[in-house]
């Protein structure tokens, strides 16, 4: 039987927590990651941090991307990181995208968020970072 000829695809969960209903950005990123050969699990709108962490574990993803525009990032993202820790799953890296002021970005990174992308970030940059975070360079 042919077995594992090539590396299995990177699995990534894209989540859009918070109450605002704009997931254009999240969807564009999801598509870019897919086009780069990843399996993207799209968590859908308005998920709670609990549901996102639950999904990350059940889907056995290599990383979690969180998109936030609502300004609630300082409430939601640390909660996701904290819950992952509680589930002994803090080996799953978290990255975030959206409108996040520099000051907050610094604090989030300190809390363990591995990468943060502002609205100006290129898709290429996001894909490359995602690969690295998943432990696959090149």
């Amino acid at each position: 039987m042919v077995r594992q000829v090539k590396q299995p695809p990177i699995r990534v969960l894209i989540a859009k927590p918070g109450l605002d209903g704009h997931d254009r950005g999240a969807k564009i990123v999801a598509r870019a990651l897919r086009d780069a050969g990843m399996e993207v699990i799209y968590a859908g709108l308005r998920q709670t941090p609990e549901a996102i962490v639950q999904a990350a574990i059940e889907e056995d993803v290599d990383l979690v991307g969180v998109s936030i525009l609502s300004g609630a990032h300082m409430a939601l993202i640390p909660r996701i990181v904290q819950l992952l820790k509680r589930e002994r799953a803090s080996d799953i890296p978290v990255f975030a995208g959206g409108i996040i002021p520099d000051e907050d970005a610094r604090r989030l990174k300190k809390l363990g968020v591995r990468a943060i992308f502002g609205p100006g970030a290129s898709l290429e940059e996001i894909v490359t970072t995602a690969r690295t975070l998943a432990g696959r360079s090149t």
Binding site: A30, L33, R34, D35, A36, E39, V40, I41, Y42, A43
Partner: peptide, 21 residues
Amino acid sequence: PSSPFSGGSVLGDRIRLDRAP
């Protein structure tokens, strides 16, 4: 179903549950 183009895929909206976490 998956994208025939890149080998990647977007696995739909995950089933959205209002279950107790």
